[in-house]
């Protein structure tokens, strides 16, 4: 393996560790979203503040929401994977015949 590939794998491993570390060390947390936590702070600082708008379409529950988040990540990953595949094949098999 080339040096770059190894570096890439090491960097990805560090990313995974950073994400796993809090899960291992903090036991009594649900890891709720920071946006939710901020809403609580607003409620604390300005107790009489009423949110004046609500999301027009909200997913009915956690399951649907996770579906949509998966879809978002999946679409993005598909595009990135496709492009990298194209670029890699181009390098390996030579530039396709010039059209423009």
């Amino acid at each position: 393996m080339s040096k770059r590939v190894i570096l890439g794998i090491v960097l990805l491993a560090i990313c995974a560790l950073i994400a796993i570390f809090p899960l291992m060390t903090i036991k009594d947390s649900e890891f709720g979203g920071a946006d939710g936590a901020a809403e609580e702070v607003v409620a604390e600082i300005a107790p009489d503040y009423e949110p004046w708008a609500e999301s027009p379409i909200a997913p009915p529950g956690g399951e649907t929401e996770s579906l949509l988040f998966c879809l978002q990540a999946g679409l993005g990953a598909a595009v990135i994977g496709y492009c990298f595949g194209y670029l890699r094949a181009r390098k390996k098999y030579g530039e396709p015949k010039k059209k423009d």
């Binding site: 009594d28 993005g76 595009v79």
Partner: peptide
Amino acid sequence: LILLAMCGAYAFVLSALKIPSINGSSS
């Protein structure tokens, strides 16, 4: 354009990943 598409897709992927953090919440 291929780079532009990849950049957009990259932002799409990363902002869908809610990762647990050291203070017990996720972002």
